[in-house]
Computed example of a mutant assay.
Amino acid sequence: MSRYERWNTLLELLSDRKRLSIEEAAQELDVSAATIRRDFDELAQQQMVTRTRGGVVAHTVAYELPLRYKAARNAVEKQRIAAAAAALVVPGSTVGVNGGTTTTEVARALATQADLRNEPGEPALTIVTNALNIANELVVRPHVKVVSTGGVARSQSFELIGPLATGIFGRITIDAAIIGVSGLDTGRGATCHHEGEADINRLLVESAAQVIVAADGSKIGRRAFARICPIEAVDVLVTDASAPDDEIARIEEAGVRVMLA
Rank of each mutant, 00 (worst) to 15 (best):
D199M: 11
F169K: 07
G167P: 02
N133P: 09
E28A: 15
L260E: 09
P230T: 12
A82M: 04
I22C: 03
I127C: 10
E105T: 02
D246E: 03
I172R: 07
L88Q: 15
F169E: 05
L260C: 07
R19T: 06
G96R: 12
I231M: 10
S207T: 15
G167K: 05
R117H: 09
A135D: 13
V90W: 10
H193K: 12
M1V: 08
P142W: 03
A44Q: 06
Q79L: 00
L125Q: 12
T173P: 07
A190P: 08
I228M: 02
A135Q: 12
V106K: 10
A75M: 10
D185A: 11
V147L: 14
R117Y: 12
L164E: 06
T60Y: 15
R51K: 15
A224H: 09
V256Q: 00
Q46H: 04
V49F: 06
N136H: 13
S148T: 15
K219C: 05
G100F: 00
D245F: 01
E5D: 13
S2A: 12
E5T: 14
V181Q: 01
I161G: 08
V49D: 06
A109D: 13
R223V: 14
E28T: 07
L65A: 09
E64R: 15
L13W: 01
I220E: 06
S93Q: 07
V31K: 02
Y4G: 03
L164K: 03
V106G: 06
A26S: 07
T166F: 08
R3H: 13
V181P: 00
V56Y: 03
P244N: 00
T129M: 11
A190M: 03
D246V: 02
P123S: 03
G162K: 13
T191W: 00
G96F: 08
A84N: 11
H143N: 08
E24C: 07
V49E: 09
R6H: 13
R108F: 10
E24V: 09
F40I: 05
